[in-house]
Simulated assay, not measured.
Amino acid sequence: MNKTREQACADSLWGSPALFVTASFICFEIVGGSGTKLGWILYACGWLPVLGMFAWSGIKRRRPGVGGAVGVGILLVFGLLFWLNHG
């Protein structure tokens, strides 16, 4: 199945929170004390693509689909875990 350029871009943006969460995890666990602030900044930046895609879905009047649920789910679960461990 060939995806349009718009769909391929949307799939990449919906999946991008995983990259931000991974970078945050590295800052929290490997870098340690001085990396905690950077970890929270990276985590907050992970919300930008998701919120942008929700806005884009609203403009296009389309449902976000499974990608929206997965992106938000990743951020919520790991945000809670980060907060419990480093909040």
Rank of each mutant, 00 (worst) to 15 (best):
M1R: 07
N2P: 15
K3W: 11
K3G: 10
T4Q: 00
T4P: 06
T4V: 10
T4G: 13
T4I: 01
T4H: 03
E6S: 13
E6T: 13
Q7C: 00
Q7N: 04
Q7W: 03
Q7V: 11
A8G: 10
A8Y: 03
C9E: 10
C9T: 12
A10M: 13
D11T: 10
D11F: 06
D11Q: 12
S12M: 13
S12E: 09
L13R: 04
L13C: 11
L13F: 13
L13I: 06
W14M: 04
G15M: 15
G15A: 15
G15P: 03
S16Y: 08
S16E: 00
S16M: 13
P17W: 05
P17E: 01
A18Y: 04
A18F: 07
L19E: 03
F20V: 01
F20H: 04
V21D: 07
T22Y: 08
T22H: 12
T22L: 15
A23Y: 04
S24R: 04
S24A: 15
F25T: 09
F25K: 05
F25D: 07
F25C: 12
I26K: 01
C27D: 03
F28V: 03
E29S: 09
E29V: 08
E29G: 07
I30G: 06
I30Y: 11
V31D: 04
G32E: 08
G32N: 07
G32W: 05
G32P: 09
G33M: 11
G33T: 13
S34E: 15
S34W: 02
G35M: 01
T36K: 10
T36S: 02
K37R: 12
L38K: 07
L38D: 12
L38P: 03
W40P: 00
W40N: 05
L42R: 00
Y43P: 02
Y43D: 06
A44D: 01
C45Q: 04
C45V: 14
W47L: 10
W47Y: 13
L48I: 15
P49W: 01
P49L: 02
P49H: 03
P49F: 00
V50G: 03
L51Y: 07
L51P: 04
G52R: 02
G52I: 08
M53W: 01
F54M: 14
A55C: 14
A55F: 14
A55G: 08
A55W: 11
G58M: 10
K60G: 01
K60V: 01
K60F: 01
K60C: 03
R61H: 07
R62D: 10
R62G: 02
R63S: 14
R63Y: 12
R63E: 11
R63A: 13
G65Q: 07
G65S: 06
V66M: 14
G67A: 07
G67L: 02
A69N: 12
A69E: 04
G71T: 01
V72W: 07
G73F: 01
G73T: 05
G73H: 06
I74R: 08
L75K: 03
L75P: 05
L76F: 14
V77W: 11
V77Q: 00
V77M: 11
F78H: 09
F78Y: 15
F78C: 10
L80K: 00
L80D: 02
L81S: 15
L81M: 14
L84A: 08
N85R: 14
N85G: 09
N85W: 00
H86E: 09
